[in-house]
């Protein structure tokens, strides 16, 4: 199988740096180098902060209210890292019966459950389910209307 063309988009979104407060390069007309010169070009990059491993990081949007107790709201964007092995306490994206869901992976007693952050939804025991962890949620992005 050979594609007619090979795209090479970067797995992470393009580098989008926030401008670091730009200091004037020269101090006045004297021509002395400004002490800020050493810092030119240093910027803050949200990708660097949120995306630890670009090759294994995927974005997903959230539909539903069951995770509001964990600060995950309908319409939020999840940053999901597949390179992490899920441990109890992690928020995970899981495949249950062919569906993609986001829940908190917990041990109750010594049995594994997928738990919601909303009292209206009971924990789901995964012992007798066709369940697979797809990835671990590293962060959630909640945007406010402005």
């Amino acid at each position: 199988m050979r594609a007619p063309e090979i795209f090479h988009p970067h797995p992470a979104p393009p580098y989008r740096a926030l401008p670091y407060p730009l200091a004037t390069i020269r101090a006045g007309i004297s021509g002395f180098p400004s002490p800020a010169e050493d810092y030119v070009g240093r910027t803050l990059d949200l990708n660097e902060r949120l995306v630890k491993r670009p090759s294994a990081t995927f974005f997903m949007s959230v539909a539903g209210d069951s995770m509001e107790g964990f600060g995950i709201h309908d319409g939020d964007t999840l940053v999901v890292d597949r390179s992490i092995d899920a441990r109890p306490g992690h928020i995970v994206v899981a495949l249950v019966d062919g569906e993609v869901i986001v829940k908190r992976y917990e041990l109750i007693g010594r049995r594994p459950y997928l738990c919601s952050g909303n009292d209206r939804y009971a924990p789901i025991p995964i012992a007798d389910l066709d369940c697979q962890v797809w990835g671990v949620v590293r962060s959630v992005i909640h945007e406010y209307p402005v």
């Binding site: 797995p11 995927f58 974005f59 949007s61 539903g64 209210d65 964007t77 569906e99 993609v100 986001v102």
Partner: peptide
């Protein structure tokens, strides 16, 4: 285009 367009990323049910 799940991984290259913001408008088309997959959905996780909560």
């Amino acid at each position: 285009r799940y991984t290259t367009q913001w408008g088309e990323i997959p959905t996780a049910l909560a």
